[in-house]
């Protein structure tokens, strides 16, 4: 379980997170929604230690992320995988090298074993036969799938998704949503998804949390979110300017 308690973060004069507290249950998919620039990506990056909160606590199991030494952070990160908004594939490496990099760095597996594991993960995300292609040769949807395969290669307990459907057409968005649900169920991982795509949020979330003005203003089931009377939630669900 991931427990976030009273996390604050500011960049210069701009306060981004102002006392965020949230619990992510084990083996479920939690979706964090909110308007653009509300701090949801900062919260996601804080969970894996890419952003250092000014104060508060983020516990991953028994480990504290906030203020952790670099060495401890790397140890904690081995339990995580992350899919970035733009996939963040390494341009200079092939698809197979991208996916297998963590195995090469952290295990003593042979080239052939790594190759097999890479092929296995590519099949999980519905791709095959593209091992030797470079990221520049892939479509947006394929890049996201390869990014997910890379995130899954070390069999993580937690997978973080930063805007997984942003920039994709509706068909590919649906395919990615199904992939997230399928991966979560098949591998039993804990998924944390940051998005402002409500179709995606209702489709994949076991739990939805909404950030507004740097705070969690709603935390509950998708059904409770849909029927919430909170003005900020109603406005977000309806997509209007007024609450």
């Amino acid at each position: 379980m991931i427990t976030i308690h009273d996390v604050h973060k500011r960049f210069g004069e701009k306060r981004v997170l102002e006392g965020v507290s949230l619990t992510i249950p084990e083996g479920k998919t939690a979706v964090i929604v909110g308007c653009s620039g509300c701090g949801k990506t900062v919260l996601l990056r804080s969970i894996i230690g890419l952003v250092s909160p000014d104060s508060g606590s983020i516990r991953v199991g028994e480990d504290e992320v906030v203020g952790a030494e670099r060495r401890d952070l790397f140890r904690i990160r081995r339990r995580f995988g992350m899919l970035f908004q733009g996939a963040a594939l390494f341009d200079s490496l092939t698809v197979a090298e991208n996916i297998g990099l963590a195995l090469r760095e952290h295990t003593r597996l042979s080239r052939q074993e790594i190759r097999n594991r890479v092929r296995e993960k590519l099949e999980v995300v519905g791709l095959s036969g593209i091992e030797d292609r470079k990221p520049a040769e892939l479509s947006g949807g394929m890049r996201k799938r390869v990014g997910l395969a890379r995130a899954l290669i070390m069999d993580p307990r937690y997978v973080l998704f930063d805007e997984p459907t942003t920039g994709l057409d509706p068909v590919m968005s649906d395919a990615i949503n199904r992939l997230i649900i399928g991966t979560q169920r098949r591998l039993g991982i804990t998924a944390i998804v940051v998005t402002h795509d409500m179709t995606s949020a209702f489709g994949i979330g076991d739990k939805i949390a909404m950030i507004s003005d740097g705070r969690i203003v709603f935390e509950g089931t998708p059904e409770a979110f849909r029927t919430s009377a909170l003005p900020a939630v109603k406005q977000f669900v309806r997509g209007g300017l007024d609450g």
């Binding site: 894996i48 230690g49 890419l50 790397f74 990160r77 908004q85 963040a88 594939l89 341009d91 995130a151």
Partner: peptide, 17 residues
């Protein structure tokens, strides 16, 4: 370029310094 396209962050998340 690796920094602005989050490739360096991706390395960090793979626990690679």
């Amino acid at each position: 370029t690796m920094r602005v396209t989050e490739q360096i962050d991706a390395l960090e998340t793979l626990a690679i310094d």
